[in-house]
Lab assay of single mutants.
Amino acid sequence: TETRTFDSEEEAKKAQKEAEKQGRTVTITRRDDRWEVRFD
């Protein structure tokens, strides 16, 4: 599991799309003013 933090939802969604192309499961969580993206 890898976790990355982004400043914008746009960036988080971009990372999510990339990871899903690779067949990974992605979870996006809102953390205050940041977006946390978890790759499984």
Rank of each mutant, 00 (worst) to 15 (best):
R34T: 08
F39C: 05
S8H: 06
F6E: 02
G23H: 06
E20D: 06
A19H: 06
R38W: 05
T29A: 06
E11S: 06
E20M: 11
Q16K: 13
A19Q: 06
R38D: 08
E11Y: 02
E10H: 06
K14A: 15
T25M: 08
T27G: 04
T29F: 00
R30D: 04
V37R: 00
D33I: 02
A19V: 05
E2D: 11
E2V: 14
D32I: 04
K14S: 11
E11T: 05
R4G: 07
T5R: 09
K13L: 15
E11K: 06
D32E: 12
T3G: 07
K13T: 10
W35V: 02
R30N: 11
T27F: 00
R34M: 14
E9V: 06
E20N: 09
F6R: 01
D40Y: 04
R38K: 13
Q16E: 09
D7N: 06
A19W: 10
T5H: 13
T25K: 14
T1P: 12
D7L: 08
E36P: 00
R38V: 13
R34F: 14
A15H: 10
E36H: 04
D40N: 09
E18D: 11
E36D: 06
T25Y: 02
S8N: 10
K17I: 14
V37F: 00
W35Y: 06
A15D: 03
E18W: 04
R30F: 08
D40I: 11
T5A: 09
D7Y: 09
T3Y: 07
E2P: 09
I28Y: 00
V26A: 15
R24S: 08
K13M: 14
T27M: 01
T27L: 01
F6I: 03
Q16N: 03
E36I: 07
K13F: 10
R30V: 12
R4P: 05
E2Q: 12
V37L: 06
W35P: 01
E9I: 08
T29G: 06
W35L: 02
T25R: 12
F6P: 02
D7P: 11
W35A: 01
E11H: 03
A12R: 00
T27A: 07
A19P: 01
E20I: 11
T27H: 07
D33A: 03
R31M: 14
K13V: 14
E10S: 05
D32H: 06
R24I: 15
D33Q: 05
E36F: 05
T3D: 07
V26S: 13
R24K: 15
K14C: 15
T3C: 12
A15V: 12
K13H: 10
F6M: 04
V37E: 02
E20K: 07
D7K: 04
E2Y: 02
E36K: 00
W35K: 00
K21G: 13
D40R: 04
R24F: 13
T29I: 11
K17S: 13
A12Y: 03
V26R: 00
Q22K: 11
E11F: 02
T29Y: 00
A19L: 15
W35S: 01
D7G: 07
K21S: 14
E10F: 08
G23Y: 03
T3R: 07
Q22F: 05
I28G: 01
T1S: 14
F39L: 11
A12F: 02
K13I: 15
R38L: 11
E10V: 07
K17T: 12
V37S: 01
R24P: 02
R38M: 10
Q22E: 14
K13D: 06
W35H: 01
E10M: 08
T1C: 08
V37C: 03
V26P: 05
D32W: 00
T3N: 09
D7E: 10
D7F: 09
A19S: 06
T1A: 13
R31G: 06
D7R: 03
K17F: 12
T1L: 12
R30A: 10
D32Y: 02
R24M: 15
A19F: 13
K17Y: 13
Q22I: 11
E10I: 08
R31A: 10
E2N: 12
R30H: 12
T3L: 14
R30G: 07
R4K: 14
K21T: 11
R4F: 10
I28E: 02
T29R: 05
A12W: 01
T27D: 05
I28K: 01
Q16T: 07
K21L: 15
I28T: 03
Q22W: 05
D33R: 02
T3A: 09
S8V: 04
G23S: 04
K14Y: 07
E2W: 02
E10A: 09
D7Q: 06
K21R: 13
G23F: 03
Q22T: 11
I28P: 01
Q22Y: 04
K21D: 13
D32R: 03
G23C: 07
D32A: 07
D33G: 12
R30S: 08
A12T: 03
T29S: 10
F6A: 03
R38Q: 14
R38E: 12
T25I: 13
E9P: 04
E20T: 08
Q22A: 14
T3F: 09
F39M: 13
T3H: 09
R30P: 09
G23M: 04
A12I: 02
A12N: 01
S8F: 04
T27Q: 09
R24Y: 08
R30I: 11
D7S: 05
E20F: 05
W35N: 01
K21F: 08
K17L: 15
T3Q: 08
K14R: 11
A15R: 04
E20C: 08
I28A: 02
R34D: 07
D33S: 05
R31T: 12
W35M: 02
F6W: 03
D7M: 05
S8Y: 04
E9Y: 13
V26F: 00
T1F: 15
D33L: 02
E18T: 08
W35D: 02
A15W: 08
E10T: 04
F39K: 03
T3S: 09
V26G: 11
E2R: 12
K13Y: 10
R38N: 12
R38H: 14
A19Y: 13
D32Q: 08
R24W: 05
A19R: 03
G23E: 03
K21N: 12
V37I: 08
A15Y: 14
F39A: 07
R4C: 09
T27E: 09
Q22M: 14
S8Q: 05
D40V: 11
E20W: 05
R4T: 11
A15N: 04
D40E: 15
K17D: 12
E18K: 08
R4W: 10
E36V: 07
E9A: 05
I28W: 00
E9K: 02
R30W: 05
T5G: 06
T5N: 10
K17E: 14
Q16R: 08
T25P: 07
T25H: 15
G23W: 01
T25L: 10
D32M: 06
A15M: 10
E11R: 03
E11W: 01
K21V: 10
R24L: 15
E9L: 13
F39H: 06
K14L: 14
V37Q: 01
K21Y: 07
K14G: 08
Q22L: 13
D33F: 00
E11Q: 08
F39R: 02
E2A: 11
T25V: 13
E18V: 09
W35F: 07
T1E: 12
Q16C: 11
F6Q: 02
A19K: 03
E36W: 02
E20A: 11
T1M: 13
D40A: 11
Q22S: 12
K13A: 09
T25D: 08
T29V: 13
T5E: 12
A15F: 14
K17Q: 13
A15T: 07
T25N: 12
T3K: 09
D40S: 10
A12D: 00
R31F: 11
R4V: 15
V26Y: 00
T5D: 09
K14V: 12
A15S: 06
A12G: 02
E36R: 00
W35Q: 01
T1V: 14
R4M: 15
D32N: 12
R31L: 14
E36Q: 04
D7H: 06
G23N: 06
E36N: 01
E9D: 04
R31D: 07
E10Q: 08
K21W: 06
T5L: 15
I28Q: 01
A15L: 09
E20S: 08
T29N: 08
D40K: 05
R34I: 12
